[in-house]
Design a protein around this nucleic acid. Sequence first.
DNA 1: CGGTGTCATGTCATCGGTGTCATAAGAGCG
DNA 2: CGCTCTTATGACACCGATGACATGACACCG
Lengths: 361, 361
Amino acid sequence: MATIYDVAHIAGVSAKTVSRVMNGDALVSDKTRAAVQAAMAQLAYIPSSAARTMRSSKSGLVGLITGAISDAPSGIEAVGLPEIFIVQGIQRVLAANGITLLISDTGGNAAKVPDLFRTLQEHRAEGIIYVADHHMNIALPPLANVKHLVLANCRDEAGTPAVIPDDEYGQYTLVSGLIERGHRRIGFLTLPENLVAYDLRLNGYQRALRDAGIPFDADLVRRGDSHGAPGESALVSSSIDQLLALESPPTVLCCGNDRLAVAVYGILRSKGVSVPEQMSVAGFDDYRVISEILFPALTTVDLPYGRIGEKAAELLIEMMRGSPDLAASPRHTVQGEAVWRDSVIVRDPKVATLKSNRRNG
Amino acid sequence: MATIYDVAHIAGVSAKTVSRVMNGDALVSDKTRAAVQAAMAQLAYIPSSAARTMRSSKSGLVGLITGAISDAPSGIEAVGLPEIFIVQGIQRVLAANGITLLISDTGGNAAKVPDLFRTLQEHRAEGIIYVADHHMNIALPPLANVKHLVLANCRDEAGTPAVIPDDEYGQYTLVSGLIERGHRRIGFLTLPENLVAYDLRLNGYQRALRDAGIPFDADLVRRGDSHGAPGESALVSSSIDQLLALESPPTVLCCGNDRLAVAVYGILRSKGVSVPEQMSVAGFDDYRVISEILFPALTTVDLPYGRIGEKAAELLIEMMRGSPDLAASPRHTVQGEAVWRDSVIVRDPKVATLKSNRRNG
DNA sequence: CGGTGTCATGTCATCGGTGTCATAAGAGCG
DNA sequence: CGCTCTTATGACACCGATGACATGACACCG
């Protein structure tokens, strides 16, 4: 590979002048610049970032760690789907700032994390972003010499700057929208209780009811997703049975995520309940492969993974540039809006519910 | 950040001796080794890979480029789902070999590719893997000085080493299994015609029929997936109508991918055809979020994205080590097997088909 | 006891850029 | 014309590791 000296020799100038041409550092005469550029083109010269890094101690690299330091029960395979969108968002921002991304994956083995950090530090990464595959609490091992660290899609108790989705807001928006569309009895099929999003979503659900003056009815909240564990389908099925058996059953089911919504579609149909005519369904995630393809198309909440990535990268770059006032608000949320599709119908609040219909029919 | 000289000074030895301790190069007395290690620990010393790279011209980096240099019609948003699994597979193998991954994404803009290559070369990546989000043909721009390049999930006409899924085999295995399970009239809802997999899958379908002595009936092959374009659902619905209207309708529908299978479930149900009792359904991809959750669980073909990534990385490492006999077979295929779930029933080939049933009933 | 070999360690140059300082060539001015 | 000032460029050290080579301390041998 050609070096700066080769270029200098061909152009008949000193290496330093070549350096100046590359960096636009100082005044270089037009003639010299042209000669240098011609020489660079002729040799297909590409500067060595290693040499540059040594001298300037700026690597132009940011490290990324993904994988599970999970607080979820073991044995649950993380699907890892959102991560690619987060990574793409990060990439987008970093590339625009001339930064290259070093990536490493724990492969689900939390014990590897210190090694991964070390590797990133060997390459003198100027900042590190840790990405989780779902909104969770994490506890990173003690890390010496890691100056700039941002968490994406997760958070810790140590006050590390974090970018997380606003689950409470998303659920609030969805449920408010359902109420606007005439729904008064809103079933809620929950996420596993140990998830961070469990509480947040439930809060959003309750706040939306409260703001609309609808009393909270605990009977409408049932266990839904259990990480795809065996027996989940039966669990969801029985949850739905309980909801349908209520004196005043729900007119819509909010599912903890889109995956669960798919299961609910099947279960409702197998029970002879049509979607959305007899029961509206809403998901959470706007996991498009599911939500757009499902029939009828699924109303859900957009979880803006790309934005989470972008914001995490923007935050990191600010930190690297030494902006202050960041420690002030360690947690940054990104809001996603409800996406209205065919699985939710508009109804007249005064018309009786499913159960009553049946009774009458 | 501490340097090798700082360590040497604290340990009371020369820098070279510290280097020897790190690399296990030459004999070092136990006492000296202990002193050096203590000093390294005390300073939390982490060697600089930039300095090492300069001296040895080995960076320990491999570059990865993802994104669309698509042969698909424009305006189609790549879902980008498999990529994460491929990337994880690559990461797994590289990490095991002490190699760090540099990643860059075109963000769907093919014009960026030369820039991305340049950036990877500035960091002196020792090899580059190009990953596509679905099995496709690509044409990379002319690249000077890229010695070791491997394509994953795509291929070109220039003979670049490539690791691709064996779509023909997958479809063959699936259809053979359907025949074993008593199906004789096998419907086939195709992928878009411009996809590489379109022909391969159709070939596998036909070969399976041929091997079983079942005549190929073109009426059983209908247009299915159209990249989620508007009107896709209507298209699939009419394709299914045509299949159901046949004198001897199919007993099972093979869908070009799992996404399409989800749509087919809904359409069949809306037409009053039960899955799998009246019509079995099979997908392709084993896209687990869909296949395991769908009700009934979807029979499909595993597309081993993780293995594709692993194999691409293994191939690249072989090339980097200078193994020969690689140019000999530029295309390496990875086979995926059919995964049998509830959406396909075993039937008695002698029993009449749906249409006949209806007629009789 | 001198010669030879092994072990343990140090010295020095080098990888490819860039920061610092020096310097040469004009330009402008009194 | 001599002085200062700007512009354009070069010389040189340095960043942090490591390869090549040198050296010093013993051990062993005849």
